[in-house]
Computed example of a mutant assay.
Amino acid sequence: MAVVSMRQMLEAGVHFGHQTQRRNPTMQRFIFGERNGIHIIDLEQTLTRIETAYAFVRQLASGGGVVLFVGTKKQAQDPIKNFAERSGMPYINERWLGGMLTNFGTISKRVSKMIELERLSGSPEWAQIPKKEALLMSRELIKLQRNLSGIRNMVRLPDAVFVLDTAIEHLAVTEANKLGIPVVAVVDTNVNPNLVQYPIPGNDDAIRANELMTRVIAEAISEGRFIAEKAGGQVQNPATAVVDNAVFAADQARARAEAAIAQAERDAKLAGESN
């Protein structure tokens, strides 16, 4: 049985590319034709590429692999968040911070800072912090949550990255390629498909098309886990599994130490004010 039907793709508008003048020459092999100045994508090839990507992600998930979902433009934000959460995978749907993959240690520290601020804001200690300092900390927490909430449980680098719109997410694609992390991506007629290992020709602007493609990847993950469980394996949620990662552990310990020092300084300041 096909992963997705031709009718589903037609109804979602997967076949609509960009205006002909925006064509990337490397996408020519995936273009069926042109209609009213818009390129039409060859859905037969899309179907084949989807099945290839589906098989890859399913195999990855069956071994407990992590897939990072990435899509920060408005049309991609909701599908990326909803289907990533549904499949228990990390995601970025607000802003890609430079170094999220290539400087993962530093990003992990920021995640630890976010978690510590969340803990502090929900504890009695928060009421003892001077108002100005508390306001600054609240603003920092909001910013951290906006950019990093989706990867709060990602304790190691992902095994693959799924991307909607490689033009906008070029930093994510570049970092993944630099580290040798496979990229599965929907590629529209204005991008270079040679930059990703598993290109899926399709419309990356329509909300329905983005939902369809993201759902397919999420279903591949679910099927991979089901296969592993039927085979007798105990598949942990890879996004939250604790792994043997000395660098990450050291970063977490350092972040906790810094948070403890900051708390001690606040306690000393409050003690001095009370005297």
Rank of each mutant, 00 (worst) to 15 (best):
A2P: 14
T52Y: 00
K74S: 15
V243L: 10
A76M: 03
V14S: 03
E44T: 09
D204M: 03
R22L: 15
R29M: 05
P124Q: 05
R215D: 07
V173G: 03
F30K: 12
F226H: 11
V14K: 00
L60V: 10
S274N: 08
K269P: 00
L141E: 08
V57G: 09
M1H: 14
P193W: 09
L212V: 07
G64R: 03
E85Y: 00
F32Y: 12
L101T: 05
A271D: 08
G98M: 12
R266A: 09
I92F: 14
V196G: 04
D205T: 11
G71Y: 04
A271F: 04
A228V: 01
A84C: 11
Q236D: 12
V57D: 02
V242R: 11
R225W: 13
R225H: 14
Q59P: 00
T102S: 15
E51I: 02
P25I: 01
V191E: 12
L117S: 10
R215K: 11
V184P: 01
E133R: 14
E116C: 02
R95Y: 09
S5A: 08
L43C: 02
I50Y: 12
I80L: 05
M27L: 10
T46E: 00
P90S: 05
T26F: 13
R146L: 06
V235F: 03
P199F: 08
T189V: 06
A259D: 06
A249F: 03
G88A: 02
